[in-house]
Design a protein around this nucleic acid. Sequence first.
RNA 1: GCCCUCAUCGUCUAGCGGCUAGGACGGGGCCCUCUCAAGGCCCAAACCGGGGUUCGAUUCCCCGUGAGGGCGCCA
Length: 459
Amino acid sequence: MVTNKVRVRFAPSPTGFFHIGSARTALFNWLYARHTGGTFVLRIEDTDKERNSEAFLNVIYESLKWLGMDWDEGPGKSGDFGPYRQSERDHVYREYLEKLKAAGRTYEKDGAVYFKLLGERSEVFDEHRKKTVTKVAAAPAIIDDQIRGRVERVEDEDFVIVRSDGNPVFHFVNVVDDIAMQITHVIRGEDHLSNTSKHVELFKAFGVTPPKFAHIPLILKSDGPGKMSKRDRGALIEEYQKRGFLPEAVVNFLCLLGWNPGDDREKMPVAEIVKLFDLPGVNQSNARFDEKKMAHMNMLYVLEQPAERFVELARAHLTQHNVTAALAAEPAYFREVMLLSQPKIKGLEELPAYTAYFFTEDYATDEKVRGKVMGKGDPKARLRELIEVLRAADFSSDTAIETAIKDLATKNALGFGDYQAVARLAVSGTNVGPSITGMFRVLGRERVLARLERFLAAA
RNA sequence: GCCCUCAUCGUCUAGCGGCUAGGACGGGGCCCUCUCAAGGCCCAAACCGGGGUUCGAUUCCCCGUGAGGGCGCCA
């Protein structure tokens, strides 16, 4: 069965947490598959038995699902090219190894199987590795790269394809599976570019035309030298999930690291990205990770969430973080508090602190703010006036409350702010929060009056 | 050390021989305003260096320099 349909694969190895760089590689593969109407294959490269773990494997599945990258073939899916875990494909590797042996392209040394390059051999002392190695004067491998153009590199040393313990190594299984799974485009990080000459030699040895390669730029750490590593802040996908980032914001941000639609657009729905994404649009230079820009993108998505979805997201986030006081509240009240907060926060992670005083009478008071607010005029007198007015005020809408306070201020030749500041301090303990009228309306008359009186008594 | 890749504001980037070098994040200022945000307007901020090619280079070529990657019986 030969088709010209695009088949791409994302081939992570479960040896660590799911990294932002891996996520973007997955994303570019997924986008390309969806853009071309091709097939997105998930293949697990778990040939290193020592370092693999099922826990990490689940993190990969969960992260991909969370980001909305569904795979067409792979673990948990049917497919004509399975199994999709390399640990279960030993028979395939054995079969392909025989082909290489039959072609006289292998030899054994120290119990390991080596792939034999074609060309003149000579012994050379390698300064870097401090040992003598056998160099092969091979013809350069041609890498047809969709992003970098034609790249030539000479592979000049035989390399191990099966370890002495019998397990095949990455370069070998990677190529074998790309052949067996009929992969048409290999989209991966630029850190693999130098290795690609090994892969090209293997493809040639199997008599197969190599797939198109596309080596995408790397993501560099935001400060300091080198590429992003798992220890860097912002490196782990599950961290974004925990912090309440919206997956569509993460996807949108990630796709902009090394790609752009060709114009000024940045915030785009994923369907639009799928429509516009193509390999020639991918940049060639590495990108530095910028947490602030990521946070900004997230805020844009928080702002535009429909009310019901936002409340749902908020509940999920507070549940994940065990914010019991909020979760115990009446659903209708919870909803009002969250919707009041939505336009004011940059991310879900602000929610617990931002809304705490709505769900407890035991909220802290910011002493710095207290000092500032209580030092101006006669705040206690204003509180007393406000309490009087609120006892009879209409609490059914923000504007009704606003009118009541404005009338009071006008009567006493003061401004709205003269009442707002002290009332906010009394009711929330801080100077940060939603509009005072919204706060009053949601908290309700009883709660507001109780808090104002309690504050006044203690002042 | 050898090999590969890359190079525009601090950062992400647009530009594909002729532009006042555009946008976004971040920073600064002003406006709006019940706090804090958000938002609106404005400002500062870049073509790594040197040679070519060309009437003309940010753009094409070469050399430096810088950055990143690879050189495992890891992936």
